[in-house]
Computed example of a mutant assay.
Amino acid sequence: MKQWIEVVNFELLSTKIQNLKTDGIIFLIDEFVWDLYKDQLNLKSLVGAIKKKVILKRLPRGEKAKCFSVYERVCEEILEEGIHRNFHVIACGGGAISDISGFIASSLLRGLSWSVIPTTLLSMVDASIGGKTGINSKFGKNLIGAFHMPEHVWLNPLFLETLPKVESLNGYGEVLKYSFLDKKIKESLLSSKFKIGEIILKCANYKNKLVEEDFREKGPRKYLNLGHTFGHAFEKMYPVSHGEAVYWGMKLLFYIFERKDLLKECDNMVKELSLSFGKPPWLVHLDEKSSLVNNLMNFVKRDKKVISEKEIELVFINEDWSPYLIALDFETIRIKLDNFFKESHVGE
């Protein structure tokens, strides 16, 4: 199934929603986004214009939304309203909101159509695209979910005007990932004339192309997981956002494989873009190196990219900067981590 990615303003967004071929709309929105943008979204006039039933549900912000209790509550509340298969779910918020909303859409009545209005940089370039949906488990992120492709992704950069600085940094972690996967994105990012709307669309289209080639993530779509294995572990171990965790996940990968060229380029781009990721999160636990490695390995072994009892598939970058997949056994990874954390600098 093809998903349509379009750049819109609020007026065009309203028109797009009105033109959906559906009998009703289930509008799932981040409660913080609702408080900021309910006037611009203007659902009351939308109801009058389309004369369809609109069910509005405000969800907790961020990862708090991606849990069993919220999933169960929202599903039951929607079913209580009385719906049928010609209802359309619209997710409006950051990546966490699109994750749980898409999972709800995939589950209700065994699958409702849905669309996404991403409101953060991270969700615009990554989470809203490709049909990966889900909620978290106590054993890790996104371990319960489904592939369910949205019909539309409506990108409105105006949402970024109220984006907190920490959320902007969160998004740039993923944007930097794209710059290692595609040289054109890297060149655009480092251009003195770059516009954030253009970068968003380039990243979104790059991901969408891989998704169309490999929806079920059996081949090249896996390239998008660069930095995510260690990144997901850092999200569980430290108070860092997803994008920041992916950034540090990439750097740790480059460190343990001794790719000084990639490390240097990463530092250069961070400097050019005036980003401030601070110090590596693992510095907090340097006095407990063995437990640090054990904790990392525990999460690595539970990662979705594990391909056997002894191996995991990682994404890495060739000398010519093309991405490739490599299967590594857990013992090799542990040895590389042990050696890295024995060094005095450990990425400072």
Rank of each mutant, 00 (worst) to 15 (best):
E6I: 07
E11L: 09
L13F: 07
S14P: 00
K16D: 07
I17P: 08
L20W: 13
K21G: 00
T22R: 07
G24M: 13
I25T: 09
L36G: 02
K38V: 00
N42K: 03
K44E: 15
S45F: 10
K52E: 03
V54S: 03
R58C: 13
R61W: 00
K66A: 08
S69Y: 01
S69E: 14
V70C: 06
E72D: 13
L79K: 11
L79M: 15
E81S: 07
G82D: 08
R85Q: 11
N86T: 05
I90M: 04
G93D: 02
G94T: 02
G95M: 06
S98Y: 02
I100D: 13
L108S: 08
L109F: 04
T119M: 03
I129D: 03
G130Y: 01
G130M: 01
G131D: 00
F139A: 12
G140Y: 05
A146V: 01
F147K: 05
F147D: 08
E151Y: 02
E151I: 01
H152S: 10
V153L: 03
L163C: 05
P164V: 06
E167A: 07
S168W: 15
N170P: 01
G173V: 03
E174I: 02
K184T: 14
S191L: 13
F194W: 00
F194C: 05
K202E: 14
A204W: 04
N208Y: 04
E212A: 14
E213T: 08
D214F: 04
R221P: 14
N225D: 12
F230M: 11
G231E: 10
H232R: 08
A233G: 06
P239A: 13
V240K: 06
H242G: 09
G243C: 09
E244V: 14
L253D: 12
F254W: 09
Y255M: 14
D261L: 09
E265T: 09
E272F: 04
L275D: 08
L275E: 08
P280A: 15
L283G: 01
L283H: 12
D287E: 15
E288N: 11
L292S: 12
F299C: 13
F299E: 11
V300D: 06
R302C: 04
S308W: 14
K310V: 06
E319V: 01
W321E: 14
L328Y: 10
D338G: 00
E343V: 00
V346P: 12
E348P: 00
